[in-house]
Amino acid sequence: MNKPEIYLKNVTKKYLRQPAVENISFQLKGNGVYGVLGENGSGKTTLLKLIAGLLRPSSGTVKVMHRPVSRLSSKDIAYLSDADSLYSFQSAHQLIHFWEKVAPDFSKDKAFSMVRELNLDVNMKIKNLSKGNRARLKLVIALSRQVPVLVMDEPLSGLDPLVREDILKLIVMNADVEQQLLVLSTHEVSEVEAFLDHVIFMKDGKCILEENAEVLREQKGQSLVATMREVLA
């Protein structure tokens, strides 16, 4: 697997003249967990879709692995949507076999071992699974891909505390953060505080701070939650 890299230069995305993200530039290099933090409506989802090549910037450049992104960047990027994006008519079993056939980087064994650990009923239709289990299964698919870049939009939002803890555990156990670059967005910093290597604070579509998490703690002598409160105020 190649060394992961994400590069944004003066990226702006407008919807009918209304900017959703504005003039964002940063470069994320190498493995690790990158948290995109900010309140709802701060442009996190738009930023993540731009990185995943599922939106086109109104101006500026987005590159992943040194190439401008498009839908075809999906060979380097696994994108986890915040929506219920699985085919409800498939079973977990069918879903995993489908991905094995469709994505050359997909590890069926890894997917099945995760599913077994989660005690998911693989023969049940996805539409009959609980919301928490659908979220888990969605994550299993993203984590079973051996790609340099993982993009996860709000993997915790809208779930019970127990499920959230479970999902974090699933990510820590199975994301290959010594190889992969994982970008995840959340508005709940306290829960992911200890998991982040790097943070990107967003406010009103702008990136207002981008820094290594430990450096921030050392410099400011305060937690990310406190830093967030300070910079977003």
Binding site: V33, K169, V172, E178, D197, E214
Partner: peptide, 18 residues
């Protein structure tokens, strides 16, 4: 292992590696 400890104490594996 890095991963085991990361899960046990609830941090990112990179932190354990460091």
């Amino acid at each position: 292992s890095v991963r085991e400890l990361a899960v046990k104490v609830g941090v990112n594996p990179n932190t354990v590696s460091r």
